[in-house]
Design a protein around this nucleic acid. Structure first.
Length: 115
DNA sequence: TAACTATAACGTCAGTCAAG
DNA sequence: CTTGACTGACGTTATAGTTA
């Protein structure tokens, strides 16, 4: 099943906002591990099925923990992006209102008098 | 006050994509 | 091809507001 890519996602995964608003490019390499993460022993030192199972479990827990953090960060960025869009909507609505008013004024000025 | 509803935040899975 | 980061989708949980 194909998962549709987000309409607000660039090819590199950053959120973008068009127009005057800032562009988010905050994807940074995550080098630091969360506290409490123990690095694996080198693969060559694993032998017994017991050790292999423990290694698999450890890898899974590490993956889940990283994904947990990634999901939090992803949601935070998305919220920020939505906020950004909302404030842009507000600005454009004000702009639009002003332009409509200006248009009405110009119409009044330019329309032939009918007395 | 208990039962219900709406909403937000979360954790996990599965899929995509870019880099190596 | 493999791997790691990212993110949509889904189910769960917590919390606040509403109603009988």
């Amino acid at each position: 099943m194909a998962v549709p890519t987000s309409i607000y996602q660039t090819s590199t995964g950053q959120y973008t906002a068009t127009g005057d608003m800032p562009t988010y490019q905050i994807r940074a390499p995550t080098t630091a591990l969360p506290q409490g993460v123990v690095m694996a022993a080198s693969p060559g030192s694993l032998h017994s099925p017991q050790q292999l199972a423990e290694e698999a479990t450890r890898k899974r827990e590490l993956r889940l923990m990283k994904n947990r953090e990634a999901a939090k960060e992803c949601r935070r960025r998305k919220k920020e992006y939505v906020k950004c869009l909302e404030s842009r909507v507000a600005v454009l609505e004000v702009q639009n209102k002003k332009l409509i008013e200006e248009l009405e004024t110009l119409k009044d000025i330019c329309s032939p008098k009918t007395d």
